[in-house]
Amino acid sequence: MTDTRTAAPSSGCPPPHPAPRRPRIVLPPGSCDAHCHVFGPATVFPYAPGRTFTPLDAPKEQLAALHSHLGLDRAVIVQSSAHGSDHRVLLDALSGGEGRFRGVALIDETTTRAEVEELHRAGVRAFRLNFLPHLRSAPSREEIDLVLELVDGLGWAAELHLSGREVADHASLIRSLPCRVVIDHLARVEIAEGAGGPALRSLRALIDTGDVWVKVSGVDRVSRQGPPYADAVALAAALVAYAPDRMLWGTDYPHVNIQGDAPDDGLLVDLLAEIAPDPGHLRLLMVDNPIECFDFSVPHHPGELP
């Protein structure tokens, strides 16, 4: 087994941006990073033996410092396949949140209902299904049904990580899920297909059901132009304008499995001025939608965190 204490990061796991700029945009109080990760430290929380990549450590303290720098008050921490179904790192991160954090779990056949209930008490409100081959083979319907049975009655969402062409391929599956569905990273659509392409047509049809949410995160992953990612920002802005009450946003920190350098997280925040130029849409995107989708406590008074 690889010793994760000394293992070098895999290709595609660059270090985070060394000096993200302080955002110019002022975010609404209670704003949420609805997609971020915690990795390690591996000496305390080892990476999964069967992982497909080895990230650099990005512990909870590093994430907290970034959020303070960016002006983000809440977070949804997504369990990574690098840690597999061992959720100790996620539970540790959630434990210090005082209600400001929610989690997304990776459930499999080794997970018990007792473990799921522990995750729920800690603040997990969704499970993730990875369809991308660089992370794992696509889950079968039997595997998905097993997860649905394990989380039955808890009100969790299903978070799907897939590529653009798979939105249409899995549209029937997505419609059949008996829960809220969240699609990650702009569905990783191929921008070259344009607004009339099959992926975006299918995505809009799914949004129209009222049960499907989209994370307009990962503009750096989807863009074919590089920073400031104008092509992907235009796509994200179009989706926010189309369904402002069904959109979420996240940094995707610390940006693993990417080509080239990690993006400037301060720039990603500032791009929200273009993604959601309407102040009402910005509040939905950053505050109200995460509260509804991930079951955060509602602030007692406007601008006050619980």
Rank of each mutant, 00 (worst) to 15 (best):
S11C: 07
L119Y: 00
G103A: 05
R141K: 09
P46M: 14
D152R: 13
G99Q: 10
L305E: 14
T2E: 09
E193F: 02
Q259A: 15
S163T: 09
V76Q: 02
A34S: 15
R22N: 03
A187P: 02
A105R: 05
I183Q: 01
A243C: 09
L284R: 15
P23D: 08
L72M: 09
V78R: 07
R165D: 09
S68N: 11
P14H: 06
A105V: 10
E159C: 01
F101S: 12
A232I: 08
I291D: 08
P263K: 05
S81T: 13
A171H: 03
P23E: 08
C293I: 15
A243V: 11
P178W: 00
R283H: 12
V240M: 06
P263D: 04
P263Q: 01
L135R: 15
R88D: 04
T43K: 14
G164L: 04
L150G: 09
C13T: 05
H35Q: 15
H67I: 13
L235R: 14
C36Q: 10
H185K: 12
S163A: 13
R221H: 11
H69F: 02
Q259I: 13
D145H: 02
Q259D: 14
I174L: 04
H87C: 11
V89F: 02
Q62A: 14
R121E: 07
M286F: 04
H134E: 13
A7Q: 07
G210S: 08
D152G: 08
G50W: 00
R165Y: 00
V181Q: 01
D278K: 08
H87K: 09
